[in-house]
C-alpha cells in the first residue's frame, strides 16, 4: 500500500480509468438509458437530450450501446486472456521445469505457430471454423497462449536454475510442488504485468476482428463493430464513430500506464 502513495500521475490515471470501466462493466443495465438492441429512433439521429450521443445506423441509442459494449468486449477479452494464461502458462512452467524433450517439443511447435503472424492466423482459423463467439475466444486464446508460453518459460527458466530449486529437486519434491511452491511465487510479478499487456493485446485483436466484421457478431454491442457500422458518418466530419474507438484506446492506455509502473517498480526493487 505504501507503493500506491509513490505511484506517478500516469499510474493513478490508469487505475482510475480501469476502475471506471469495471463499474461500467458491472452495472451496464442500470447505467444505460436504453436497451442494448432496442431500436429507439431513426438512424443516425444527432446528439440530443434524449439520445445523448445520438443513434446508430439502425436507430439504437449510441450511449447505451457504448456502455453495454464495455461489458461485452471487455468480458470476452478477459475470458480469452485467462484461457490463454491457463494454457500457455501451464505449458511454459512444465517446459521450464522438466526441460529435455518436453521443452524441445513444446518450444519447437510454438516456434512454428509463432512464425505465422497472429492476425493472419486468426483470419485463417476463423474462416474455417466460422465466427461464433466460442470459436473467437478459443482461437485468440490459443494464438495468445503461444506468447504467454514464451514469456512464462523464459522467466521460469531464470528461477529453475536457482540453487533453491535444485535443493528442492534433490530433496525429492514432486513436479507440482516445485512449480507451486518454488517457481510460481517468484514469477508472479512479471506474470501479472504480462497479464495486463496480453489483455491489451487480446482486446485490440478482438476489436480489430470485430472491426473487420469477423469478431463479435451483431446484434451484440461491441466497440470494434460499432466503429465499422457507423464509419460512414466520419466522411461527414461527425466524430461519433470515433467514440467507441476512443473507448478502446483509453482502456489500453490506462492498462499500459499501470503495467509500465508495475514493471518499473519490480525492476527498481531488484537493484
Amino acid at each position: 500500500m505504501k507503493l500506491l502513495k509513490t505511484a506517478p500521475v500516469s499510474a493513478w490515471f490508469g487505475m482510475i480509468v480501469i476502475l471506471f470501466y469495471v463499474v461500467l462493466m458491472l452495472f451496464a443495465p442500470i447505467l444505460a438509458p436504453f436497451g442494448e438492441t432496442e431500436i429507439v429512433a431513426y438512424e443516425f439521429e444527432p446528439w440530443s437530450e434524449t439520445y445523448l450521443l445520438g443513434t446508430d445506423n439502425l436507430g439504437r441509442d449510441m450511449l447505451s450501446r457504448l456502455i453495454y459494449a464495455a461489458r461485452n468486449t471487455m468480458g470476452v477479452a478477459l475470458i480469452t486472456t485467462f484461457l490463454a494464461f491457463t494454457v500457455g502458462g501451464f505449458m511454459g512452467l512444465l517446459a521450464a521445469t522438466l526441460g529435455g524433450w518436453v521443452d524441445q517439443i513444446f518450444s519447437r511447435s510454438i516456434d512454428v505457430l509463432m512464425a505465422i503472424p497472429s492476425l493472419i492466423f486468426a483470419l485463417l482459423l476463423l474462416t474455417i471454423f466460422g465466427t461464433s463467439l466460442g470459436n473467437l475466444i478459443v482461437v485468440i486464446a490459443l494464438l495468445d497462449a503461444t506468447r504467454v508460453y514464451r514469456l512464462t518459460r523464459a522467466v521460469a527458466m531464470t528461477i529453475v536454475v536457482m540453487d533453491y530449486v535444485e535443493a528442492a529437486r534433490l530433496r525429492g519434491e514432486g513436479l507440482l510442488w516445485q512449480i507451486r511452491k518454488e517457481i510460481l511465487p517468484n514469477i508472479m510479478a512479471p506474470l501479472v504485468a504480462e497479464f495486463g499487456l496480453r489483455f491489451c493485446f487480446v482486446f485490440l485483436m478482438i476489436s480489430a476482428l470485430s472491426f473487420l466484421g469477423l469478431g463479435i457478431q451483431p446484434p451484440t454491442a461491441d466497440w470494434g463493430s460499432m466503429v465499422r457500422d457507423n464509419a460512414s458518418l466520419i466522411t461527414f466530419g461527425d466524430i461519433t464513430p470515433l467514440l467507441p474507438a476512443g473507448a478502446i484506446a483509453l482502456l489500453t492506455v490506462a492498462v499500459n500506464f499501470v503495467v509500465d509502473w508495475m514493471l518499473h517498480q519490480s525492476s527498481g526493487l531488484k537493484e
Binding site: S10, C200, L204, S207, A208, F211, G224, V227, A231, I234, T235, F236, G237, I239, P241, L242, A245, G246, I248, A249, T252, V253, V255, N256, F257, D260
Partner: peptide, 27 residues
C-alpha cells in the same frame, strides 16, 4: 516521449486512421 509512445502503442490502428481522416481528409 515515453508517455506518447505508450499511448500510441495502445491505440487500435483504425482509431489512428480515422482520427487522421477526420483531421487531414474531412476537415
Amino acid at each position: 516521449i515515453n508517455m506518447v509512445t505508450l499511448s500510441s502503442i495502445s491505440f487500435p490502428e483504425f482509431f489512428v486512421a480515422y482520427i487522421l481522416i477526420v483531421f487531414l481528409a474531412v476537415r
